[in-house]
């Protein structure tokens, strides 16, 4: 799984440009599922029939990562960008990037210190004010079009029990879904919905419940914020890496049903899988639109704590990743025992 996650992390795919991720996942799982299709949003939907086909679980994870998009090309060949998904502007400058389909290497540049007026040095960074230099002579020869995506040129690497890399949000979810689909036989049927366009407003999740039958519940797998510092100060934290996957009780678009919360905790305790709660209520995931789609569907979000999420490099714990896979698989295996009433 680590190798697959590293490949997924190194691949490029922002909202609306998920093809590379989708093709990689198709290659990984095509021999392990009964059907595959791609919907109008670009989400990939795999179906794997289980021993009991009367019960089907909707598994979901989003393929897209946060990235930039070219929205301006200056006469001198410098590029202007907007963000596709949420970035703190401060994390963007002075990074190596790859531009467009040809992955032209470039850099997010700032004027050098010497050329800035003293007050200019103190000014906050805005994405609008950033430029990307790909070394082009001028506009006509730069070989870039408006609408080309720009990705951070981060390569994932393992260091001890940790992985450093980009796009763990939400390639960890994709990697774990692939693991589940690679199981020989599951006791219940599963739809694996690899969502498109989560980072621009949980859009893949809005269509995920439709055109599917006999759904019992949704398990959404995500990456989430980790902030170990608040634990030191004994204040409201979010999650801590190394303490297991985080179960969401409430965030900006879901309040998790207490029955499913109790049920998943009982499974984790029985299987001795470590877990924690996501304790901040900010951020939303595809589980939000999924649980309010149609007549409503119980949904559960389990997320891997990522330090420095939504930046060119994040850090995750490999034991957390393994625990999250174990918990997700146990939830699917025990799906028949879940009761909403």
């Amino acid at each position: 799984m680590i190798k697959r996650l590293i490949k997924l992390s190194n691949a490029y795919g922002a909202a609306g440009d998920e093809k590379e991720i989708r093709d990689f996942i198709i290659k990984e799982i095509k021999n392990n599922v009964d059907s595959l299709k791609i919907d109008h949003l670009g989400s990939l939907i795999a179906f794997k029939k289980g021993t009991n086909d009367k019960i089907r679980v909707l598994l979901s994870a989003h393929m897209d990562e946060v990235a930039l998009i070219v929205d301006k090309i200056d006469d001198n060949g410098l590029l202007g960008v907007s963000s596709v998904g949420g970035f703190l502007p401060k994390v963007i400058p002075a990074k190596k990037v790859l531009v467009g389909k040809d992955r032209l290497p470039g850099a997010v540049v700032l004027k050098s210190l010497h050329l800035m007026r003293p007050e200019e040095r103190e000014m906050p960074v805005s994405i609008r004010g950033l430029n990307i230099d790909i070394g082009a002579k001028d506009k006509s020869s730069c070989n870039v079009s408006i609408g080309d995506y720009v990705y951070f040129a981060t390569k994932a690497r393992q260091q001890g029990n940790y992985l450093f890399g980009k796009a763990f949000d939400d390639r960890v979810g994709c990697a774990i879904l692939c693991e589940i689909l690679k199981e020989k036989k599951l006791p219940v049927s599963v739809y694996a919905h690899f969502c498109a366009q989560e980072e621009v407003g949980t859009r893949g999740g809005q269509t995920a419940v439709f055109n599917k039958e006999r759904l019992k519940f949704n398990l959404n797998l995500e990456g989430t914020t980790a902030n170990d510092r608040d634990f030191i100060n004994d204040l409201s934290p979010t999650t801590e890496i190394g303490k297991g996957p985080a179960i969401t009780i409430m965030d900006s678009n879901i309040i998790t049903n207490t029955k499913i919360l109790d049920w998943v905790q009982a499974i984790a305790k029985e299987k001795k899988i470590p877990y924690q709660f996501k304790r901040s209520v900010v951020g939303g995931t595809d589980a939000g639109p999924i649980y309010t789609s149609k007549e409503g569907l119980p949904a559960l979000n389990i997320a891997l704590p990522c330090r420095y999420i939504h930046s060119p490099v994040a850090i995750i714990s490999i034991p957390d990743l393994n625990a999250m896979r174990d918990l997700a698989l146990a939830v699917v295996v025990k799906a028949e025992s879940f009761k909403i009433k």
Binding site: D234, L235, S236, P237, M250, R279, S280, V281
Partner: peptide
């Protein structure tokens, strides 16, 4: 969201 060492509760 959090129960601190002294038993105070943080919340949202």
């Amino acid at each position: 969201t959090h129960i601190d060492k002294k038993g105070y509760l943080r919340f949202h």
